[in-house]
Every structure is written in C-alpha cells, then in structure tokens.
C-alpha cells in the first residue's frame, strides 16, 4: 500500500484533473443536449486544441495559457463549417447519419494530424507543467491547479452564457422543443451551429490544458472522447453544474483506481464506471435539465 502522502496527492490530482475533464465534457454535453448529436469527433477537436497550443508556443512564443482564448476561437471557427456543410444537409435523416459523418470527420482529422504533425508523442513543455505545489502532505503539479482554475472559470462563463443571455435562452428553448422554438422566432439551425462551435471551443481549450499536463499523440482523441462521455453520463446530459461534479467524480475515481490497481488502470476505471452507469441509468446519475 502506498504511503498516505502519495494517496492524498493522487486524490488531489484526480480532483483537479476532473475539472479539466469537466470542461471538455461540457462541449460534448452541450452538443448532445441541444442537437441530440453524438459527436464522435469530439476527441479530435480536443487533440486539435493541444496541437494548436503546441504550435502557438513554437511559432510565436506565446504561452499557451495566454493563448487559450485564441485556441478556443480557432477550434470553434473550424467546427463551424463542419456543421454548416456536413451536418446541416443531414437534417431530418435521423440520428445515425450525423453520427456516422462525425465518425468520418474523426478519422480524417486523426490521420491529417499524422500527415501534418507526424505520429510522434508530443507534449507542451512549460515549467508549470512539472513544477509542483506542496500543501501539507499533498504534492501536485501546478498545471493541475491552473487547469482546474481555468476550467472552472470557463465552465462558469458558459453557465452564465447559457443561463443569463438571450443566446442561452434560445439554446435552452431549442434543446427542449425545437419546433416551438422555431415558431416563436428562434433560428434553430443557427443556434445549433453556434452550439457546435462552442462545444468544439470547450474541447479545444481543454485540449491545450491536457496537452500541457500530459503527452498526446494524434490518436489520443478516442480515449478522451470516452472519458468525456463518462463524465456526461455521470453528470447528466445538458446539466452544466452536474458536468463539473461528474468530472471531479471521475477524476477521483481514476486516481483511486490508479492507487488500488496500478497506474495503468486509471483510464480503465473510467471506462468501466461509464459502462456501469450507462447500463444502470442511461440518463445519467444526476439527471436534470440545464
């Protein structure tokens, strides 16, 4: 059994890492809740964010943390035409055609990453990625704390956007009853396009943070997609605060799994937890609406 310090540090890392999971999962959750779309390319948007952070640093020297908004904007802007030209024409063709299309986008993006950036394992090298913070028995990397803070702020902003603004009103109305929303004057397709871009931006920003904290490869997206699904299912679809709770829960469970079973089992714990929750309660443990 590892020492108490290691256990405490590991649980704390899991908690903070869970915040980052929550941010990326929020993107998946919004798209699923508003558009009823399983975005199988979500993991690739996340990895795109990691690459964007990496190259921003390499080419311009801008610290990825300073450039987070830029990364979010870039990934969101890339997602917009995907919605406009690939998803909009599939309206009314059932839920499977858009999902398959996003599957296609996912494999295209993954292989473009390999073609453009090689299959090498990368990471964004920053001091704060390795420097650690010690509080009592707990020692964790600074990036976990920074990532958590950034994620909570971003989640809070998205929450405000959804709950306080006119766009958020349109978004929530389109999610519950797109027909009625259109009748009262909401341009539901535009809301969907914006939601899709917002979801991708969340993935992109979270991706940069993950790229600083961990190494990544062009094909890392699939694991994050599933981790994010686990968070969505734990937290309840379309429930923003639930997503945060789901992320933290998953982060801690992963740490526990790592302590008890060995580090390699971290991701497996998430997957198994996901399958169990999905089987017991497909609507999520904290089922609720926005």
């Amino acid at each position: 059994m590892p020492s108490l310090d290691v256990v405490a540090s590991s649980l704390a890392s899991g908690f903070f890492l869970g915040g980052i999971y929550a941010l990326t999962a929020l993107g998946l959750s919004l798209v699923l809740g508003v558009m009823r779309l399983v975005n199988l390319a979500h993991g690739e948007f996340l990895i795109l964010g990691a690459y964007a952070g990496l190259f921003l640093l390499k080419w311009t020297g801008v610290d990825p943390l300073a450039g987070l908004l830029l990364v979010g904007l870039a990934v969101g802007l890339l997602a917009y035409p995907i919605h406009r030209f690939l998803l909009t024409p599939l309206r009314g063709k059932g839920p499977e055609a858009p999902m398959m299309t996003m599957f296609g986008v996912s494999i295209i993006m993954q292989n473009l990453f390999i073609l453009l950036f090689s299959a090498d394992t990368r990471s964004i090298e920053r001091d704060y990625a390795t420097a650690s913070l010690s509080v009592g028995p707990v020692t964790i990397a600074w990036i976990y704390v920074i990532g958590f803070a950034v994620s909570v702020i971003a989640i809070g902003l998205v929450h405000l956007l959804v709950s306080r603004t006119a766009f958020g009103r349109d978004l929530r109305a389109s999610a519950v009853d797109p027909f009625a929303a259109a009748i009262v004057g909401v341009d539901v397709q535009r809301v969907h396009a914006a939601t899709f871009a917002l979801g991708a931006a969340c993935a992109g920003i979270g991706g940069t943070l993950i790229g600083i904290a961990f190494s990544f490869t062009p094909s890392s997206g699939a694991t994050y997609l599933l981790t994010n699904f686990a968070v969505v299912v734990l937290g309840g679809m379309g429930n923003i605060m639930g997503t945060l709770l789901g992320g933290v829960t998953l982060g801690i469970m992963q740490s526990l799994g790592g302590i008890v079973l060995g580090d390699g089992y971290r991701d497996l714990v998430g997957m198994v937890l996901f399958l169990i929750v999905l089987a017991i309660r497909p609507t999520g443990l904290l089922a609720g609406k926005s």
Binding site: L86, P89, L90, A97, M100, T101, F103, G104, V105, S106, I107, I108, Q110, N111, L112, I114, L115
Partner: peptide, 19 residues
C-alpha cells in the same frame, strides 16, 4: 494515413448521398 483519411471522406460522401 492518406488511405484512412480518404476512407473517411468516402464514408461521409456515402452517408450523405448513397445511404
């Protein structure tokens, strides 16, 4: 990689135009 990426493109085109 190009092969798989092209497979993805074909997949999207087929889903859209030839179910």
């Amino acid at each position: 990689e190009l092969h798989i990426a092209i497979t993805g493109v074909i997949l999207i085109v087929i889903v859209r135009f030839a179910p």
